[in-house]
Design a protein around this nucleic acid. Structure first.
Lengths: 347, 347
DNA sequence: TTGTAGGCGTTATCAC
DNA sequence: GTGATAACGCCTACAA
């Protein structure tokens, strides 16, 4: 049989469509008695509201777009998604994940954005927004919530990790352990699409200065320009080569992400350098793999970021005041097995 | 200004709504010239079709539900999502992820299912379907595609990994390496919700028999019933205790998943057993952490599973014949550092 | 508290 | 190839 409509329910319950609609959504004034009748009828007919029809009539899609830079199976993105899902779903919202890779796709997506009226809000995650994008974002009238994006002002609310605090903690740890020559290792950043890793270089520089490391106490080592396809081990090999050919070999290195850090550790061992005896390594993120590899790292919590972003989304949607509209998450240092005291005999 | 509608575009282009609709969707017969006019007008008005209106009128939601057992940030689930997203998005479909944890949520969801007409198809991943669920699944008239589910027949199409083949490869490896006493380690399975891990026990038993391991050549070690909250290290400790208190200590152990395998390795080392010199360990999945931890494992490819499921979904949606409706993925053995030759002096 | 009726923006079925 | 026009299923004033 064909799908039941609200009219069928109304007839069976002996009330009007309007009443059915109200009863089903649990709003408005409806007598408990009539509500029961309606609910029974709906149940008997196996009826649910058709989202598209509700959306059309009410103007609310009950959908929220989660736009991530990078693939949905990346550690960060999948955690943000789960976090957002957890808080949005109980409120009746669907979350519609979208993934954008590279500047071209981003430009395209943002150019189309203003036309779009197919969601009630949009959460954008890990984007380095340029002027054009920011303008598009302003042009749409749906609430925009940022996750780890630099230009907070282009959003109605945002959450993010404090990279500066994180890097600062890493550098202070190394200082405490007696490391006098440290470095920061980072992959080549093609188009500056991703926010975090580029900001972390800055953060390292700042931390290094604040902790009294001089010109030759701190170095930045980054990969040369290369196609996206470069394998992690290859990248690590290049970074290690640069690290070891520095005028003075550092006794500790901070790495942009856990992924790269782990590859680096492997390459270092391959070069017969002991970690952490000969050289300490600190990652960034505390992704699952960091624990598996016993990597000392700076933890950020994307799951919580997703939840927080979703909470703000809800507040925006309800026109409630957003508490702490631009919130920064404090990263925490996780000590594992890749860091140790600096060894003096190397000096 | 308010959002433009198809009527505005029609007026500006000097044609009828119907023509606009056809032109915009690139179907039907529309003169290139009029198409241009329409496209220009749409562009000038910043117009896009409203999904909910299209959906209501056409009966197609252009949405596909991806129902996963477990959280969206789990390795398997996020990869299936990415895979499905990759093939569905270019075809104009949204993927709407949903997560179900535990039997209660599953029962509830499936009970509501038949009412639902808010998607064009549903992909269900990693569910152990009981009779009631299967019935519900049949009751809905949208295409149902399974990913790693045992009762393929309840779906219109399915993809999955061949656990038996995978386990068989693991066991054969151990046999080649000269291991005469092997074991399979597995967590307690509360409600048999998740398909893979339960089937893997079976698969181990079968493989062990086929490879001539006798009664005391192979053992199953599983955790006692416990609350969901048990930590991985705790679990590993329990499993290792049972492993080491077997009548004869095995020289190799297959573990249900990489996660558990890695915890196990750590606990073994903690007990001053060398891996793989004293005992070999094989995981299952080849999740990211397996590489980070240098774990030998059986690889399955959920990304490809997601893609394949999505492709079948598309075929079902187009009423095309589905090629290989119930497809099994062949797992491959990945050799890393946690397996080695059996040492005779232990015997 | 409940009912009536108009409208939400598209698509689809006809004619032309 | 193009244009009217009737659905599509629900929400929301407004009236009762």
């Amino acid at each position: 049989m064909a799908r039941a409509t609200i009219a069928d329910v109304a007839k069976l319950a002996g009330v009007s469509q309007a009443t059915v609609s109200r009863a089903l959504r649990g709003i408005d004034k409806v007598t408990p008695a009539t509500r029961r009748k309606v609910l029974d009828a709906a149940d008997r007919l196996n009826f649910t509201l058709l989202k598209s029809a509700s959306a059309l009539a009410s103007g609310k899609t009950m959908r929220i777009i989660l736009l991530s830079s990078g693939k949905l199976n990346e550690w960060f993105n999948s955690n943000v998604l789960q976090g957002a899902y957890e808080v949005l779903t109980p409120e009746g919202y669907d979350v519609s994940p979208a993934s954008i890779i590279g500047k071209d796709e981003a430009d395209h997506y943002f150019a189309e954005l203003p036309k779009n009226r197919n969601a009630d809000a949009i959460i954008i995650s890990s984007f380095q927004l340029d002027a054009a994008m920011r303008e598009r974002l302003k042009a749409i009238d749906m609430p925009t919530i940022g996750v780890n994006i630099p230009s907070e002002s282009s959003c109605d609310a945002s959450v993010g990790i404090d990279n500066f605090d994180g890097m600062s903690k890493a550098v202070r740890l190394l200082k405490s352990l007696g490391h006098e020559r440290i470095a920061f290792a980072i992959d080549y950043i093609p188009q500056d699409m991703v926010y975090n890793t580029s900001q972390r270089t800055e953060a390292f520089l700042e931390a290094v200065e604040q902790n009294g490391y001089g010109e030759d106490g701190a170095a930045i080592v980054s990969a040369d320009e290369h196609p996206q396809s470069m394998s992690r081990p290859q990248l690590a090999a290049e970074l290690v080569a640069k690290l070891l050919s520095l005028p003075q070999r550092p006794t500790a290195v901070c790495v942009e992400t856990d992924q790269v850090a782990i590859a680096l550790v492997k390459e270092l061992k391959h070069q017969h350098l002991r970690v952490p005896e000969d050289i300490s390594v600190i990652g960034f993120d505390d992704a699952d793999i960091a624990e598996a590899a016993d990597l000392t790292t700076i933890r950020q919590n994307p799951l919580e970021l997703g939840r927080a972003a979703a909470r703000k989304t809800l507040q925006l949607l309800k026109d409630e005041p957003v508490d702490d509209p631009h919130e920064a998450q404090e990263p925490v240092l996780v000590l594992r097995d890749t860091t140790g005291r600096a060894t003096r005999d190397e000096a």
